[in-house]
């Protein structure tokens, strides 16, 4: 039905967009192994940038901050979000949709406004530092947890839960044995998404960070403004691999569901 020429054109177009998206990333990876500092000259293969990256105290401090911040924010966001979902299922439709509208605000609003708003709050009442960054990152992550857990919770079989209660299980026990295994994939992908979003964030971190504290994103921003340092290419390559593994895991959990992928896609369509 479809002519050969058209098929070729379609393949060519897919390849073309693919090239546009990946060429810059590929160049970063290639440059991380380039012994020459010049971008257009290949000076031989080297691991030197990776070695000096590991010895760069400023970079390592930023990596540590990012990991601690991201992990704690994702963990707290997952707990808050999952509990909120469980509580919301027994609420009236109106209160549910009211809570969801508020939940959508950080996803729909411009990051710059969210960042500034949280910064103003902390400057007035507590001062900026690790705590303000943590609060901002948790706030950023919870909506994605809720978006992932809520559908799973709605799919769970209520009868099985009620049957467990009839058979004498306490609500907590029934929840742990019946509901939790069902929603676990949602909880897990919610956690991984909150983690990825927090790791990727620049704007909100930029406004809420305390003086002298940097995450990977804000550190790269400062470095780029000072002039490019090949160690950044090495860092890019490592981060690229980390994200690749992470997304592969999320994908495995969600069984290749494009719908779920859209919900993750920074949720901007949630309106």
């Amino acid at each position: 039905m479809v002519s050969r020429g058209q098929k070729f054109l379609e393949r060519f177009y897919i390849g073309f967009v693919f090239f546009l998206l990946y060429a810059p990333i590929l160049i970063l990876i290639v440059c991380s192994f380039n012994a020459s500092k010049a971008r257009t000259v290949w000076g031989g293969f080297t691991f030197n940038w990776y070695v000096s990256l590991a010895q760069n105290e400023e970079v390592m401090a930023a990596v540590r901050t990012s990991l601690v911040l991201t992990f704690s924010a994702a963990l707290i966001a997952t707990i808050l979000g999952t509990l909120a979902c469980i509580g919301m299922t027994v609420m009236k439709k109106n209160s549910q949709s009211a809570i969801m509208s508020v939940t959508n605000i950080p996803m729909l609003n411009a990051d710059i406004v969210t960042g500034i708003a949280i910064m103003l709050l902390f400057v007035r009442f507590a001062g900026l530092g690790m705590m303000s960054m943590l609060a901002a990152h948790i706030t950023l992550g919870v909506p994605y947890v809720i978006l992932n857990v809520m559908p799973k919770l709605k799919q769970t079989n209520r009868s099985a839960y009620e049957a467990a209660l009839d058979l004498g299980a306490t609500p907590t026990y029934a929840f742990r044995k019946i509901v939790l295994p069902d929603i676990m994939p949602g909880v897990l992908s919610g956690f991984l998404l909150a983690f990825t979003i927090s790791l990727d964030d620049f704007v909100i971190t930029y406004f809420t960070k305390g003086p002298g504290i940097n995450t990977i994103s804000t550190m790269i921003y400062q470095q780029v403004r000072r002039g490019i340092n090949p160690e950044m290419y090495a860092l890019s390559t490592i981060l690229f691999l980390v994200i690749l593994v992470f997304l592969w895991i999320v994908n495995r959990i969600q069984n290749d569901e494009p719908q779920a992928a859209e919900a993750q896609a920074k949720g901007k369509v949630a309106a």
Binding site: L21, I25, L28, D200, I220, I228, L235, L239, I243, A265
Partner: peptide, 19 residues
């Protein structure tokens, strides 16, 4: 096709600057 979305935003800008 959506994988690049998850690569650190700053790194993508850095890559373009190089190009």
């Amino acid at each position: 096709f959506i994988l690049p979305m998850w690569i650190n935003f700053m790194l993508r800008v850095l890559a373009l600057q190089m190009i």
